[in-house]
Design a protein around this nucleic acid. Sequence first.
DNA 1: GTGCTTGCAAACAGTTTGCAGATAG
DNA 2: CTATCTGCAAACTGTTTGCAAGCAC
Lengths: 146, 146
Amino acid sequence: MADPQTRFEDLMSKLRERQCRMTPQRVALLRLLASGTDHPSASHLYDQLKTQFHTTSLATVYKTLSLLDDMGEVLELGFSHGVVRYDANKPYPHPHLVCIRCHKIVDCECRTAACLAEQAAKQLGFQVVSHRLDFYGLCADCQNTG
Amino acid sequence: MADPQTRFEDLMSKLRERQCRMTPQRVALLRLLASGTDHPSASHLYDQLKTQFHTTSLATVYKTLSLLDDMGEVLELGFSHGVVRYDANKPYPHPHLVCIRCHKIVDCECRTAACLAEQAAKQLGFQVVSHRLDFYGLCADCQNTG
DNA sequence: GTGCTTGCAAACAGTTTGCAGATAG
DNA sequence: CTATCTGCAAACTGTTTGCAAGCAC
């Protein structure tokens, strides 16, 4: 996980370079995204924002996420059943552990994934620019609770 | 890729075991799914069915896909932007090459992926039951067309 | 002051559901 | 004959868009 404060300042300066305006809502959202404590969904982010701003909207969350996506500063993780989760703390491809019970998503250090990509794709003449590796199963907590 | 005819008969017998009725629409859909020539979306399957049955519906496609999903006989591949593609030819986890231009999805033989799963997850006390590995990039065709 | 951003509401797309009629077994 | 399946239409969910008012710069 990247350091939340460093990543927050990184996002701030990248948006400023783009002449984006730093509204309080946007700053709060960036701070949430940079924290890296979770891989939140859009509505989860909205719920957290609502505790700070009594008036705010899901549309604003989506607009900022889409802006960051265009800039390549957020990883959009689409799953089955229409579930989408975001990772703006570490926006480059990396393996994830996805708990099938509590739906927690944890980063997983795993050096060999990237070179596996190159190796596997070369066989089919495929030019790899990105990859995605998810492990599904039960996290330690969920294994211990029947 | 599994042999289409074998996989088709396999799906047929598994549905019969469940006392499912083999309507012409369902048989045609199973044949499409077993063919393994592509990793189609629901509406792509519907389009292909419409050429055989002038009256048919997307709801029927979804109902059969959901039935096969419950039986573990289809792999649901969710992507960003609400895109969902299905793989019923080889319904167990395996790596995919996803073309970011033409959106072709190709199976990729890659023996090391499964053991990588075990290895990586053991470090975090995560019990892996499934995995997903996608490589994104340009397929051979798209590299050769500007 | 300018024009980007917000937040509401309406539109939208993909998926799911309810139900009456059709049909496989 | 019976229970399942089909296919239509309506409901639903998550996301996107349009626009008037607000606010960062």
